Simulated scan of single mutants.
Amino acid sequence: MSKLDALPISISGLTKSYGDIFALNHVDLEVRSGEFLTLLGPSGSGKTTLLMALAGFTRPDHGSIRFGEDEIVTMPPHKRGVGMVFQNYALFPHMSVAANVAYPLKLRKTPKAEADRLVEEALETVQLGGYGERRISQLSGGQKQRVALARAIVFSPRILLMDEPLSALDKNLREQMQIELRHLHEKLGMTTVYVTHDQREALTMSDRIAVINHGRLMQLDTPRQIYERPANRFIAEFIGESTFLKLERSGDRISFAGVELDVGEVPDGNELSLVVRPERLTILNGDDPGKTNIFPGTVRDLVYQGDTTLAYVTLADGTDIAVRAGMRSEAAIDTVSIGERVALGLKPADVVLIPGEEA
Rank of each mutant, 00 (worst) to 15 (best):
F256M: 05
V27P: 07
K3Q: 13
G63L: 10
D198R: 07
E358I: 10
E248P: 00
M1Y: 08
T191W: 03
R59C: 00
T292W: 02
L39C: 09
L181W: 03
I254R: 04
D307A: 15
K16C: 11
E330F: 08
V73Y: 01
V275R: 05
Q145H: 08
F57P: 14
Q176I: 06
R233A: 12
E241K: 14
F256V: 03
E241D: 13
L14T: 01
D307G: 14
I333K: 12
D207L: 04
A55G: 15
A331C: 12
G46R: 09
G356K: 10
D262K: 13
F36S: 04
S206F: 02
A122C: 06
E69N: 14
R108V: 00
G129C: 01
R135D: 06
R135S: 13
S12I: 00
L302R: 12
G326H: 13
P230V: 06
A325L: 04
G318T: 15
L128N: 07
H197R: 05
A236E: 02
M95Y: 12
E237K: 06
V352D: 07
L353M: 15
V313Q: 09
L40F: 09
S64T: 14
P230Q: 03
V275A: 09
D334Q: 13
V193M: 01
R59P: 00
E133Q: 13
F238L: 04
V119M: 07
N232L: 00
V119K: 08
S140Y: 01
A148R: 05
N100G: 08
S10H: 14
A210M: 13
E114Q: 14
Q305E: 13
V351P: 07
G68D: 11
E260K: 01
F57Q: 12
G56N: 10
F234A: 02
T309S: 11
D20N: 15
R174N: 03
L315G: 09
R216Q: 14
M1T: 10
I9H: 02
E330L: 13
G68A: 11
F155R: 10
L188S: 01
L169P: 11
E279N: 08
Y194H: 12
D350H: 15
V352H: 12
N213R: 08
G63P: 08
K144Q: 15
R174E: 05
D70R: 15
T243G: 05
A98M: 12
D116R: 14
L261V: 04
F256K: 01
D207G: 02
Q176R: 14
S250I: 00
G56A: 08
G189H: 10
A311D: 09
F36Q: 08
H197P: 06
Y227H: 12
R280D: 15
T243V: 07
L181Q: 02
M162R: 00
G264T: 01
L37G: 06
G44D: 07
F238Q: 07
N172Y: 01
L166M: 03
I254A: 06
P348Y: 11
Q305A: 14
L166W: 05
H183F: 00
G306D: 11
M190Q: 09
D20C: 02
T15G: 01
T49F: 01
V97K: 04
D268A: 14
L203S: 11
G306Y: 13
Y227A: 08
S206P: 09
L14R: 02
T335P: 00
S242G: 02
F67E: 09
